[in-house]
């Protein structure tokens, strides 16, 4: 599984990054969360608001900072689909 947080370094982006790391830790996964802060790289995902969470190259949401719980559900959903 690949997790990316898209954001240009604003407070919201940092919070999403922290929440995502927390979610991964709470789920006991050995997954690295990547922070993508290059704007041209971010625009490849065709989003119009930051921050955004990308799971396996798929944008899951953009422009908001969901709770750790919601991120955990999204990650678990993806894990369920993988197995």
């Amino acid at each position: 599984m690949k997790l990316k947080v898209l954001g240009t370094g604003c407070p919201n982006c940092k919070r999403l990054f922290a929440n995502t790391q927390q979610a991964v830790r709470e789920l006991g996964l050995d997954v690295e969360v990547e922070m993508v802060d290059d704007i041209q790289e971010i625009m490849k995902f065709k989003i119009m608001a930051t921050p955004a969470l990308v799971i396996n190259e798929q944008v899951r949401f953009s422009g908001r900072v969901p709770s750790t719980e919601e991120i955990k559900r999204l990650v678990q959903l993806e894990l369920g689909g993988e197995s």
Binding site: T8, C10, P11, I39, M43, M48, A49, P51, G63, R64
Partner: peptide, 15 residues
């Protein structure tokens, strides 16, 4: 529209 100033760039490009 939900918007924070850090989204200004992606929003600008999208528009």
């Amino acid at each position: 529209t939900p918007f924070c100033s850090c989204s200004a760039v992606p929003l600008f490009i999208g528009f």
